Amino acid sequence: MSLTKSLQQQLLHVAKDSIAYGLQRGHALAINSEDYAPDIQAQRASFVTLEINQQLRGCIGMLEAMRPLVVDIAENAFAAAFKDPRFAPLTASEYPRLDIHISILSPAEAISFYSEEDLIRQLRPGTDGLIMQEGNKRGTFLPSVWASLTQPEEFLSELKLKSGLTSDYWSDTLKVLRYECEYISEAR
């Protein structure tokens, strides 16, 4: 389901407003989803990625739909700015330089495969986001990661590392799910 340009802009404003609110108040902007169009009230999973000068500044999201999309984006934008453990909390001086990118995920579907080679053959570079899970270890790469990891073997190897496994790990109990994303970015 693709959102209209107007709804995409609303979501970008919600993300930006939630970060600004966080700078002033220390928590995400409270959103009443009923104040928004039905398409963004629907439960959907999302990630919010923040960049400054094309460098990652924070990225937080949900792999499963747990709350209305507009609420998910407000919460994830705040968390990406202030709670991503890889970065210090966003400062007021950084705020005007932020580029906000929203990824809205389709529901994830399990991929059936009988070997690593079979899995690699089924991957769709540039389209698939992947979730890898082995026991209590789990990681994901959004489809946008294909821009920097263009080869399926490399993509899979790096996802294993992100999931807390070794790059050459393989097991018959490994689970891999795929999803697609609708991307929304500010025009600059």
Score class of each variant (00 low, 15 high):
15 A>M: 05
16 K>H: 14
16 K>N: 13
17 D>E: 15
18 S>P: 08
18 S>R: 00
19 I>N: 03
19 I>L: 10
22 G>F: 01
24 Q>Y: 04
27 H>G: 05
28 A>H: 08
29 L>N: 04
30 A>W: 01
32 N>F: 00
33 S>V: 01
34 E>C: 00
34 E>W: 00
36 Y>G: 01
36 Y>V: 01
37 A>Q: 13
38 P>G: 07
38 P>N: 10
38 P>S: 12
40 I>T: 03
41 Q>Y: 09
41 Q>S: 02
42 A>Y: 03
43 Q>E: 14
43 Q>R: 07
44 R>Q: 15
47 F>W: 10
51 E>N: 13
54 Q>H: 14
57 R>Q: 06
58 G>F: 09
58 G>R: 04
59 C>L: 02
62 M>Q: 09
64 E>M: 06
65 A>T: 02
66 M>H: 12
66 M>K: 15
66 M>Q: 14
67 R>G: 00
67 R>N: 00
68 P>F: 03
69 L>I: 07
69 L>M: 04
70 V>P: 04
70 V>E: 00
71 V>K: 13
73 I>Q: 06
75 E>C: 04
75 E>S: 07
77 A>G: 03
79 A>E: 00
79 A>K: 14
80 A>C: 05
80 A>K: 01
80 A>H: 01
81 A>V: 05
82 F>S: 01
83 K>N: 13
83 K>V: 03
85 P>F: 05
86 R>G: 09
87 F>P: 09
88 A>V: 00
88 A>N: 13
89 P>D: 01
90 L>T: 06
90 L>C: 12
90 L>N: 07
91 T>Q: 13
91 T>E: 13
92 A>Q: 13
94 E>P: 02
94 E>M: 06
95 Y>F: 15
95 Y>V: 00
95 Y>T: 01
96 P>W: 08
96 P>R: 07
97 R>N: 13
97 R>D: 14
98 L>F: 12
100 I>N: 02
101 H>E: 15
101 H>S: 14
102 I>M: 08
102 I>C: 04
104 I>M: 05
104 I>V: 15
105 L>M: 07
108 A>C: 01
108 A>D: 02
111 I>A: 06
112 S>R: 08
112 S>G: 01
113 F>Q: 11
114 Y>W: 00
114 Y>K: 14
115 S>K: 10
115 S>M: 11
115 S>G: 12
117 E>Y: 02
117 E>S: 14
118 D>C: 07
119 L>G: 12
119 L>A: 04
119 L>N: 06
122 Q>M: 11
123 L>H: 13
125 P>H: 11
126 G>C: 13
127 T>I: 15
127 T>Y: 13
130 L>G: 08
131 I>R: 12
131 I>H: 12
134 E>L: 11
136 N>E: 04
136 N>Q: 14
136 N>R: 15
136 N>S: 13
136 N>W: 12
139 G>Y: 05
141 F>L: 12
142 L>E: 12
144 S>L: 10
144 S>Q: 15
145 V>R: 11
145 V>C: 09
145 V>M: 11
146 W>Y: 09
146 W>P: 10
146 W>E: 12
147 A>G: 00
147 A>Q: 15
148 S>F: 11
148 S>K: 15
149 L>I: 04
150 T>Q: 15
150 T>F: 08
151 Q>T: 13
151 Q>P: 04
155 F>Y: 15
